[in-house]
Write a protein that binds this DNA or RNA. Structure first.
Length: 278
DNA sequence: ACCCAGGGTGACG
DNA sequence: CGTCACCATGGG
C-alpha cells in the first residue's frame, strides 16, 4: 500500500478499503458517521476518515503518528491477494465478494481486551453503548465531548456496582477483575512476541476471557491472523454452509487452519459479515 | 411472554 | 476431558 502525506493528514492509496464495512463489522465500536465520512477515537487520539477517489484520507495525522495509523488500517496486508487465496472455496468466494473492503484493524490491546469481555453473549449496538458509557465515566476527555478509552488505572476507579449501572450486567466483575490485574503491572506488550497458541492459553486465564473472546483479542489487537473466533453467527455459517458442526474449540481451530491457514481470521471476518447481511 | 445477541464461569460427572 | 444451569440487559 502506498502512503502519502496530504496537507494535515495522510492518504492510504488502496481501493480495498470500505470504512463503512470496516467500522461496522463488529471489530471496533468507537467510530461514528459524520458528514462525508467517519470520526472516531483510537489509540487515545481523534481521527477523521474520508473515502476519496485515490484512497482513504485520514486526518489530522502529525508526522510522528503516520506509521501508527497506517498500521491501524493494516497497511502491510494485501487483502486482494488474500481473497484470491480463498477463491477455490465457493462459499468464501461469495462471502469475500460481499465483504470486499473490510480490513482488520490493529487496535489497542487493553481497549480490545475490555471491549470483548463486554461482547460476550451481547449484541453490537449494546456493546457500543456500554463502551461509550465507560469512556464517558472514566476516560480522558479529548475535545468536544469525545473521550478516550480509559487506561487500566482509570478503569479501576469504577467499582463493579458502577459498571452494572452502565449496563455491563454480570460482566461487571470480569471487567473490574481483569482491569485490576492488568493495572497491577501485567505487560500487555508481550503477547505480540508470543505465538498464537501460547498467547491464547494465557489470555484464557483472565476473568471473562474464553476461547472466542481470546481469538477476537488476538485478531483485532495482536495481529494473529490465524485466530478464528467462532460465535453464534460462525456456528450457523459452519453448520449451514459447510455442513460442519464443531464439538469444541479444538475442532474449529483445526477446521480453520486446514481450510484457511495463516489468514483464517480474515476469512472469518468475511464470513461473519456475509452471514449478517445476506 | 419468549427469544436472541461477537460466551464464560463454576460445579459436577 | 464434556455437559449444563446460570448469568444482566435491551431490542425484536
Amino acid at each position: 500500500m502506498i502512503i502519502t502525506r496530504y496537507k494535515e493528514g495522510i492518504l492510504l492509496e488502496d481501493e480495498w478499503i470500505s470504512p463503512e464495512k470496516t467500522f461496522n463489522c463488529g471489530q471496533c465500536f468507537r467510530f461514528y458517521s459524520e458528514e462525508e465520512g467517519f470520526c472516531g477515537i483510537a489509540h487515545g487520539r481523534i481521527l477523521h476518515v474520508r473515502k476519496t477517489e485515490k484512497g482513504l484520507y485520514l486526518f489530522p495525522v502529525p508526522a510522528e503518528d503516520e506509521s501508527l495509523w497506517a498500521d491501524y488500517f493494516d497497511a502491510e496486508t494485501d487483502y486482494r491477494a488474500v481473497s484470491e487465496k480463498f477463491s477455490h472455496d465457493p462459499v468464501m468466494r461469495e462471502a469475500a465478494a460481499a465483504a470486499e473492503g473490510i480490513r482488520l484493524l490493529n487496535q489497542d490491546p487493553f481497549e480490545t481486551i475490555i471491549t470483548f469481555i463486554v461482547s460476550a453473549n451481547n449484541n453490537i449496538p449494546r456493546i457500543r453503548s456500554i463502551i461509550e458509557k465507560i469512556c464517558r465515566a472514566c476516560g480522558t476527555e479529548l475535545c468536544g465531548g469525545m473521550y478516550a478509552f480509559p487506561t487500566p488505572e482509570q478503569l479501576c476507579t469504577l467499582a463493579p456496582g458502577q459498571l452494572r449501572e452502565l449496563g455491563a450486567g454480570y460482566r461487571a466483575e470480569y471487567i473490574a477483575d481483569t482491569a485490576a490485574f492488568i493495572a497491577c503491572g501485567e505487560d500487555l506488550h508481550r503477547y505480540y512476541e508470543m505465538d498464537y497458541k501460547t498467547a491464547k492459553k494465557q489470555l484464557c486465564g483472565l476473568k471473562g476471557i474464553g476461547p472466542k473472546v481470546a481469538d477476537c483479542i488476538l485478531l483485532f489487537a495482536y495481529k494473529k491472523k490465524e485466530a478464528f473466533p467462532v460465535d453464534v453467527w460462525l456456528k450457523r455459517c459452519l453448520g449451514e454452509l459447510y455442513r460442519f458442526d464443531p464439538k469444541n474449540d479444538k475442532e474449529s481451530e483445526a477446521f480453520a487452519l486446514e481450510r484457511y491457514g495463516e489468514y483464517a481470521g480474515i476469512a472469518q471476518q468475511f464470513l461473519f459479515y456475509y452471514m449478517r447481511t445476506r
